[in-house]
Design a protein around this nucleic acid. Structure first.
Lengths: 339, 339
DNA sequence: TTGTAGGCGTTATCAC
DNA sequence: GTGATAACGCCTACAA
């Protein structure tokens, strides 16, 4: 059933060497011979065996991928589409490496090496989830998504987080908001840290006062948005605008506000992050920062591919731009402003 | 750097055979020798090379997976978590096989064979997306998710679709609804067909009249729900309840209804399908059919594993139960009912 | 209980 | 231009 290069050689009446040359488009084979061999390959539906090829070449045409266990990243499938697009042009397949977390001797690097993967993608983790040091220092090309590790053969790709939040805060400031709250996700996540930094800087650069009560940390969910807004409403001087670290948070914030009798955007302006599908359909439609997940995935593979082909190139650090989508959840601040 | 079995043999002062036996837990090795070799393996951080092993054994400890191009399945990441759980106990890694769709000679089976995958998972496709016949007839163990193909070594896993929809319709009937509409997804998708069949049967078994105007086909999105409901509202005898083939559809239906001045559930009862996160937070919270994506993923791997280990077992066809979640989007029909 | 040698399917080196 | 043949790292008869 399964044919090999020797069968083809026999059928064509040539040596395996010649067949190999044909398969790999190498020179030193006469046009006639090449044509004949190619014909036979087609007839017999022969495909060279990756495994054997991998063994002799030490490569596998495979990129490994580690995901966080029990994957919670809500946009993984979108990133995957980007990965797939880029992968199609490279000839790589993508091997999802299953971490054996109950084995204390388990090692990412060894897993990669035993599988001969040519590069690795690491996604969905926080910095302390695993010991990444080993792989960062290894010579396996590695790209982290949303985690800013850099090593001799390791780089990262992430969305523009700091500037995006700054843009949002500045936008609200232009609408005369001075009491701008921020509802973040986990502060121990990379994106959480970055976005908080964006908020901090914006407040500072605009000369606004920094109120710790205006800052809330949660977990990117609707619930944590609801909780945060509920707390803001207890304040004697509540914020007039809220920047959120995810659209889900924004939904929770809006719900709590509406339940408390506020109308949006008249009484409260809200900005989200991500631009999930539902955000265009909320009442009012949510102003938000759109992440470009496709590009995130796409570029991860392209950069990895470059690292594989040019092992001595410097490690990449790519910030993918976001897009500020203005809808109807923000309005000019209704409170009197003293300038 | 990369060690091999021969290095270990040398360090341990034994032959490669002995090392191989130790690695594979085979008998005929003295306890002392075994201990010594194991120690060295640990010290040198040796891991046997999958590729070489795959070559000689014709197996790869790899399960292949085909996803639809530009993956649109909204719950893929949940299914993936299930896959991962089961995978951890099997020692398989999961190879995402990238289809080269611009190559007319591309063949799923050949891709699998060249990669030596031991089994294949096929997910997110509709029946005519690709020529699956070849792989169904091949002797590569194959599991389809949400696609009812059966072959000598091919089976499938899917959620309970027919009975779920029947349950929903029956529930509405008990609330005295007789004018029950159905907003479906694509009829050419497997789940679309099944769910429509469930609706048809329920209507028939309950002795209700079948109104073609009460049935709408769309694409599982909120928009298609909105469109469908808008059309229902034009009818002179509009439905009093709507069963939807996805929660997103249900959201669209509710939006259109509310905009038209109806209140839910007083004037219109709505049931969704999937139980996405947002459904607990809608106003009112959505009654829906919860899919068990984790089990879907989990069982796919377990069944595949069985097929790999017992090639002669009959092909599986597993229907994963759903759960009817009653929230607040349904009420007793307000229209007078003639019995 | 241990070791030797051949082979898995392919590529690469070097003669012819 | 073409064809033997030795790797690649591992497993497994078979011999010792």
């Amino acid at each position: 059933m399964a044919k090999n290069i020797r069968d083809i050689a026999k059928s064509a009446g040539v040596s395996v060497t010649t067949v190999s040359k044909v398969i790999n488009n190498k020179p030193y084979v006469s046009p006639k011979t090449r044509a004949r061999v190619e014909q036979i390959i087609r007839d017999e539906q022969f495909i060279p065996n990756h495994t054997a090829r991998g063994l002799v070449k030490g490569k596998s045409k495979t990129i490994g991928m580690f995901l966080t266990t029990g994957l919670t990243h809500p946009f993984f499938s979108k990133v995957l589409v980007g990965l797939e697009n880029a992968l199609k042009n490279t000839g790589f397949d993508l091997l999802y490496l299953v971490q054996i977390d109950w084995n204390p001797e388990y090692s990412l690097v060894q897993h990669c090496m035993s599988r001969n993967v040519e590069g690795v993608l690491i996604f969905g983790f926080q910095k302390n989830d695993l010991n990444f040091e080993e792989i960062i220092q290894s010579d396996i090309p590695t790209i982290f998504i949303d985690l800013d590790f850099i090593g001799p053969h390791a780089g990262y790709v992430t969305s523009e987080n700091i500037e995006s939040i700054k843009t949002a805060v500045q936008y609200l400031y232009k609408l005369h908001h001075h009491k701008i709250a921020f509802v973040n996700g986990h502060l121990d996540s990379y994106v959480g840290k970055q976005r908080f930094e964006g908020y901090r800087r914006a407040i500072q650069e605009l000369g606004l006062l920094y109120f710790p009560e205006y800052i809330s940390f949660g977990d990117f969910t609707k619930e944590s948005g609801y909780t945060a807004m509920t707390a803001f409403l207890q304040l004697k001087d509540r914020p007039t605008a809220v920047v959120c670290s995810s659209d889900m948070i924004a939904l929770g914030v809006m719900e709590a506000a509406v339940e408390a009798g506020l109308s949006i955007p008249q009484d409260l302006s809200v900005i989200g992050f991500d631009d999930i599908e539902i955000s265009q359909h909320t009442q009012p439609a949510l102003t938000t920062i759109q992440q470009d997940f496709l590009t995130l995935g796409d570029q991860s593979i392209l950069l990895l591919n470059d690292m594989i082909n040019m092992p001595n190139s410097p490690p990449p650090a790519l910030i993918v731009p976001t897009k500020f989508i203005i809808r109807n959840s923000c309005a000019i601040c209704s409170q009197v402003v003293n300038d």
